[in-house]
């Protein structure tokens, strides 16, 4: 269990706890302020690399380094009030079944990194985004598209087939749910920071509660899974004639599992693998 599940999960995963979808969270002033800061400032800050890079590298001692890392995290958290976690498709469907109104809106990352203003790939489930997005029409070009739960699940399956990773996003300070984004590298800021910076800057996008388990005997080395991985965790090994999996990079999204014709890939709980159980 990640720390957020321990705090807000009531014994379950935090995103499966019905309390985190409640409209009561809107009464919290910190949540309201965070939502508005997010809508006002998200573009200039989300896409840029961490401004302190050169300074971090020049520092000598570990103590100075960790201080600088903390300062960087603090600086980013002031502007980026969204925090996410990768989820596999079965959990994404559970989230949609739990949530109240479901709506499709245009994607903020695709707008700022691809100038694609209308592509509606984000499925919003929580009250926070839908309540406040109306006041910021830039974020909802072509409107908020309310859809039924069945339609939302169909969309999720469609995105899964296309090869998008499902990330569930919440407010930075509270467990208030934003929604499910369907992301790809490098157009998603979260996956991008994850891949470029590695585990030390993991607060923006946490890995999922699962990790991949590969059955070598069943693998035929067809390579279908290699193309699906958005986290560069899978490589084809010509020597072994099989796909090889970097468990430390694996975020547990389950995209590779869904295309494996041999059923050689499955997801297991991250808790059960000692090497990666503390890697979020």
């Amino acid at each position: 269990m990640c720390e957020w599940c321990q705090k807000h999960g009531d014994g379950k995963k935090w995103y499966l706890n019905i309390k985190n979808y409640s409209k009561d969270l809107l009464k919290d002033e910190a949540v309201v302020q965070a939502a508005n800061t997010y809508f006002q400032n998200v573009e200039p800050f989300a896409g840029m690399s961490v401004p302190m890079n050169p300074e971090l590298l020049k520092l000598k001692s570990d103590e100075e380094f960790s201080q600088a890392v903390d300062a960087t995290k603090q600086a980013i958290s002031t502007y980026l009030l969204q925090k996410g976690q990768v989820i596999p498709i079965e959990d994404a469907i559970k989230v949609i079944e739990l949530s109240g109104p479901v709506a499709q809106v245009s994607c903020v990352c695709r707008r700022m990194l691809r100038a694609s203003f209308d592509e509606k790939t984000c499925i919003m489930t929580g009250p926070v985004y839908l309540e406040y997005a109306k006041e910021w029409p830039d974020h909802i070009r072509n409107g908020i598209n309310y859809i039924s739960k069945e339609e939302a699940i169909e969309k999720i399956e469609e995105f899964n087939e296309k090869g998008y990773v499902h990330n569930v996003f919440r407010d930075y300070h509270s467990p208030a749910m934003f929604g499910i984004c369907n992301c790809e590298f490098p157009t998603c800021n979260a996956i991008r920071s994850r891949r470029y910076y590695g585990d030390w800057l993991n607060f923006f996008l946490k890995k999922s509660e699962y990790v991949v388990m590969h059955d070598r005997d069943k693998c035929t080395g067809c390579g279908d899974c290699v193309m699906r991985c958005q986290f560069s965790a899978i490589t084809y090994s010509p020597y072994l004639e099989k796909a090889i999996f970097d468990m430390k990079k694996c975020a547990g999204c389950g995209l590779c599992r869904d295309v494996c014709e041999q059923k050689a890939i499955k997801l297991i709980s991250r808790e059960d693998v000692p090497a990666v159980r503390r890697l979020w």
Partner: peptide, 12 residues
């Protein structure tokens, strides 16, 4: 990265 020069609440 593209970003709005000045974003005002309620306006495109």
């Amino acid at each position: 990265i593209t970003y709005p020069k000045a974003r005002v609440k309620g306006e495109v």
